[in-house]
Design a protein around this nucleic acid. Structure first.
Length: 281
DNA sequence: GCAATTACCTGAGGGC
DNA sequence: TGCCCTCAGGTAATTG
């Protein structure tokens, strides 16, 4: 599923292929895809018609396209299986096509395709340049607005486990299950480590690890493990970046050779090295 | 107010 | 062949 590096690849594609173009038609093929757009499909389509896409922006895993005419944007979250495809308007409709935008220039459609329907799109007001529904989430660690000190202080105030805090959007956004495991491995931290026991230097190390693993994936255009994800041009955005722990159950840790363990965590999986990442007492 | 848990959703893959 | 179960997991909503 798309995590931050993959979403950034999509954003770049949107900036290249969609920005500057005027929307002619908007078609909602599945109501669930716009479930967070309260006024409904008819209003959604009417409000998009005639608007020009200004640019493509991102915070964490949220994408949005600011529109001409008002402080408003078309916002999207890809969920687990969402794709934004730029395809020939005459191309056959995808099986899981949810929303389709046509443009006045007669060029390629922008299509929102989503098998598992965890993703969604909506029209929303921009407040200081950020969509109103996501004003409560923290900036992601690659934004200039990200405040390392606020993250550190906030983490030490929390009374929870470190991985929960990483996945929670309130202190840092854009970190999903895969990169949380990868960053914790790099920083030699067990996922259940209580946040209030982390020292400032250790938090700095963790933050550097988060940026390292996501930055490396970003430099290569994303990571590779799920064929559902396709980037804005309809081609795989994933590359063969080897993951150190995620999905590597029973395979040797590259640092010490100990078999990687898989543990149940929040109704999903957590992968770690039993030697490098000691469970807190 | 904060932390923890659950709901949402579809298709792949395994067991029988 | 086909049915049932498990798994994948980000976020909002709900519960504690």
């Amino acid at each position: 599923m798309p995590e931050l590096p993959e979403v950034e690849v999509v954003r770049r594609g949107l900036a290249q292929w969609v920005a500057g173009r005027e929307i002619a038609t908007a078609e909602v093929l599945h109501p669930r895809a716009i479930r967070r757009h309260v006024p409904g499909a008819t209003e959604f389509a009417a409000r998009l018609k005639g608007r020009t896409v200004i640019s493509a922006e991102r915070r964490g895993k949220y994408l949005w396209l600011p529109l001409s005419g008002a402080e408003e944007a078309l916002m999207a979250h890809l969920g687990m299986s969402g794709q934004l495809l730029v395809v020939d308007p005459h191309a056959p409709l995808e099986k899981h096509l949810r929303v389709r935008l046509g443009f006045t220039d007669g060029g390629p459609d922008l299509r929102f395709v989503d098998q598992r329907t965890f993703g969604h799109v909506m029209l929303t007001a921009l407040v200081d340049g950020v969509p109103e529904p996501i004003s409560h989430i923290a900036p992601d660690p690659f934004e200039e607005a990200f405040d390392d000190e606020a993250f550190t202080a906030g983490l030490r105030r929390k009374r929870t486990e470190i991985k929960r805090a990483l996945l929670d959007q309130s202190l840092i956004s854009g970190v999903g299950n895969i990169y949380a495991d990868e960053a914790l491995w790099l920083a030699r931290l067990h996922w259940a480590r209580p946040t209030q026991t982390l020292t400032r230097p250790k938090i700095a190390e963790l933050l550097a690890a988060v940026r390292e693993v996501m930055g490396a994936a970003l430099a290569q255009g994303g990571t590779s493990f799920d064929s559902l994800y396709v980037n804005v041009n309809g081609e795989s955005g994933y590359f063969d970046r080897s993951l150190e722990v995620y999905g590597r159950r029973d395979q040797p840790c590259s640092r010490c050779g100990t078999p990687i363990r898989r543990e149940a965590f929040m109704n999903r999986s957590s992968y770690s090295c039993p030697t490098c990442q000691r469970r807190p007492r």
